[in-house]
């Protein structure tokens, strides 16, 4: 469905990502995990086609994203950024309506069908009652749920999420991940909480300092050794059903701080 080939990205004279090759299959939930500054957000930006990579390519069903019109990309791929804020006083519903943008045009005005899609998106994140609330009056979690609703209103085949559970309480964290997994969508999500990755992802890709260090099923990837090496934490991993697992964090691994100078 979506494949990255040998992606390289540099910014401010620093190499952020190098030699990333990765692919997400139809209807797969791919979690991207890694410590702060490992390049997760940059990778998602490239996968969404917002920037051309310095080297390598991103292929959507075999076609380079840079060769597809922006609008056609947006009909297939929706992105929820980590921090997208606005100073505009739009209402919750207006924010979700933006999701229909790539489907509308001079010959395709707003229709009842669009209204139904927006209503359904609002309902799916439990924000129907908030539809007419102005954006500045909403909490961080409510805004985050609306961003997800906006992405769903885009009716994409691929949903790219950057730390989607930020700002959400536990109920809404799990609710949101269940919601996107229940849809017949390819999901690529950067996740901080390794247990979320272990519970929801079909596969996990681990990034460290701009390189892809491992990909595979949660139970294969999230081993005590990898958690110590990459995340510098001691943990016990308990096996779960269908290749999943549960992680019990015990603490920061002791020798790590010396090995890893402050960045």
């Amino acid at each position: 469905m979506l494949a990255a080939r040998n992606l390289t990205w540099r910014a401010g004279g620093r190499t952020i990502l190098s030699g990333i090759s990765l692919m997400a299959a139809e209807s797969e939930f791919l979690a991207i995990v890694g410590p702060n500054g490992s390049g997760k957000s940059s990778l998602l930006t490239l996968l969404a086609g917002l920037r051309p990579p310095r080297a390598g390519q991103v292929l959507l069903r075999g076609v380079d994203l840079q060769d597809i019109r922006r609008r056609d990309v947006a009909r297939v791929i929706a992105l929820v950024e980590q921090q997208a804020e606005t100073g505009e006083r739009l209402t919750a519903r207006q924010a979700v309506k933006l999701g229909r943008t790539p489907h509308l045009g001079p010959l395709r005005p707003w229709s009842r069908q669009d209204d139904r899609i927006v209503d359904a998106a609002l309902a799916s994140v439990g924000m129907t009652g908030f539809a007419s609330r102005p954006w500045p009056s909403l909490s961080g979690g409510e805004r985050q749920r609306l961003h997800i609703a906006r992405a769903l209103a885009q009716a994409p085949r691929i949903l790219i999420l950057d730390e989607p559970t930020n700002h959400l309480d536990v109920e809404h964290q799990l609710g949101l991940l269940e919601l996107v997994r229940a849809r017949d969508l390819t999901v690529i999500a950067a996740l901080h909480d390794l247990n979320h990755a272990a519970m929801f992802a079909d596969r996990i890709a681990v990034l460290d300092r701009g390189r892809l260090v491992a990909t595979g099923r949660p139970a294969e990837i999230l081993t005590p050794r990898l958690l110590a090496e990459i995340f510098h934490v001691d943990a016990r991993v308990e096996p779960g059903p269908d290749g999943r697992c549960f992680i019990r964090l015990l603490g920061v691994s002791r020798p790590a701080p010396e090995e890893c100078p402050a960045r």
Binding site: A74, E81, G99, Q154
Partner: peptide, 21 residues
Amino acid sequence: ARALDAFAFGANAAAALGIAV
């Protein structure tokens, strides 16, 4: 007008909504 609406959450969000920024 519609493309301008899409800039509400910034240029990146507009691009993700299919606007050729």
